[in-house]
Amino acid sequence: MKLRTALALVMILLLLTALTACAPAETTELDAQSQQTQETANDRPDTDRSGNPITLPDQVDSIISMAPSATQTLLDLGMKDKLVAVDTYSAMYFGLENLPTFDMMEPDTEQMAVLNADLIFTTGMSASTGTDPFKPLRDVGVCVADIPSASGIDTMLEDTRFIADCVDAEEICEALIAQFQKELDQLSEIGAGIRNKKRVVVEIACAPDIYTAGSGTFMQEMLTVIGAENIFADQEGFVSVTEESVIALNPDVILTMVDYVEDPVGEILGRTGWENVTAVANEDVYLVNTNAVSLPNLHVIDGMKQMAKMIYPDAYAAIEDPFAAGDAA
C-alpha cells in the first residue's frame, strides 16, 4: 500500500475572539505602534483547536508541521521559508524532501527540540495510541498547537483561520477563503438545481476490505453540495462495508481514491459479481485526486470540482477540472 493512501485512510478515521482597543486622540507614532502590537497580540489564539492552552511567541519565524493538511495551508499562506521540518508525508506530497522529516506516529521529539522551532502544528492522529508524543516538548515550553481532522467545511475554514492567526497571515487567509467561498457558492447553486440525483459511493480502500465515508464526514458534505447522494449516508463516520452491501445498494457512480493498486478503476470494473452494478455496467467509475478529497483544508474545493464533473459532466460543464491535465492520483 502506498504510504500516502494509508495516511489518507488513518487521517480520515481519526474564531478567535478579536480584542480591539481605542487609542487616545493624542498619541505619538511610537505609542501607536505599541498599541498596534498589543492589539495583534490580543487577537492571537490562546488555545489550540483541541482546546489546549497555548502561548504563542511574539514572532513566529520557524515552524514544524506534523500534518499534511496543515503543511499545505502553511504553503498557501506563504510560509514555506519558515518551515524547518515536516512529517514524512508532507515532504512526499509537497516536494519538501530537503527539510528534516519526522514520523507522524513516532516523532523524535529530542531531534525536534534541537531545531528550536517557535511553533509546532500537530494532528490528533499522532496521539491515536492514547498518549501524547509531544508532551516532552510541551513540558519544556515549546508551543505545540493541535488541529483535529475537520468533520465539515465550516470547521476547515475555522482551522485555516486559526493557522493564519498563529502565523500573522490573516490578510492572505481571508483572500483565500473569499475565493473558496465564491467557488463553493457556484458549486452549491448548480448542485441545488439537480433533480435526478445520482447515487454514489467513494472507495477509500478497495475490495475485499472496502472502506468508505458515511454521514458526519466532510466527504459526505462534499457530495451533498454537488447534488449527489451517498449510498452509505445512513452510516456514521468512516466505515468498513462489504462487497455485498455495495452491490445491493447499486450505486450509479463509483469514485475511488485508491492508489495502491496498479489500475484501481480497472480493478473495480473487473470485479466478479459486480457486472450488473449500474456504475460498473455503464463504466461510471472514476479515480479522484487522493489529496484533494482526503486532506481537510481549502483544497477540498478542487476535489469537489473534480467529483462534480465526473458525476454530472453536463451540469458542471462550465466548471474547470483542476486535474484535467494531470494525474488524478
Rank of each mutant, 00 (worst) to 15 (best):
T256P: 05
P136N: 10
A308Y: 03
A279G: 04
F121Y: 04
A23E: 13
E39R: 12
Q220F: 10
T212G: 04
T101G: 01
I319S: 04
A169Q: 15
V285M: 03
A207K: 08
T290D: 11
M307V: 08
A41Q: 07
Q111W: 04
D43N: 15
R138T: 13
M125L: 14
G51W: 14
M125Q: 12
M105D: 09
M105L: 14
L30H: 12
T71M: 02
A164N: 04
P251A: 05
V261K: 06
G227F: 02
Q181R: 15
G266H: 07
D46V: 13
Q111I: 06
V114T: 09
E106Y: 12
P136E: 02
D321M: 06
N276L: 09
A6Y: 02
A292S: 07
A25G: 08
P68C: 03
D108G: 09
E320A: 12
T129W: 05
A21T: 13
A127N: 02
L77Y: 09
I319D: 04
C166I: 07
P100Q: 05
A324Q: 03
F218L: 10
I247C: 09
E174A: 02
S90C: 10
A91Y: 05
S240A: 08
P57T: 01
F218N: 04
A233F: 00
A308F: 02
V300L: 12
E243W: 00
G237L: 01
M304V: 10
A228C: 06
A233M: 01
T55M: 05
T71F: 05
L13G: 10
M304C: 12
V202N: 13
V142Q: 01
M307Y: 12
Q33K: 15
T242S: 15
H299D: 15
T20Y: 15
D76C: 00
D43K: 15
F238M: 09
A248M: 07
Q36N: 13
I301H: 10
Q36T: 15
D81V: 05
D263W: 01
T20C: 07
R195V: 15
E275W: 06
G191L: 02
N42K: 11
T256E: 00
E26H: 14
A318E: 09
M307P: 09
L223Y: 12
T28V: 03
A281D: 03
M156I: 15
I54V: 15
E158A: 06
I177S: 06
L56I: 03
A228P: 03
N52A: 12
I301G: 11
T217M: 09
M257T: 13
S128G: 03
V144L: 08
P133I: 00
K197S: 08
G141Y: 14
A145Q: 00
A328S: 10
P251I: 05
M66L: 10
T71Y: 04
D263G: 10
N289R: 12
L176S: 00
A70Y: 07
D87F: 09
N98C: 01
F238G: 05
S128M: 04
M11I: 11
A8W: 00
E243P: 07
A145Y: 01
D46T: 15
I194N: 10
M1Y: 11
L137Y: 04
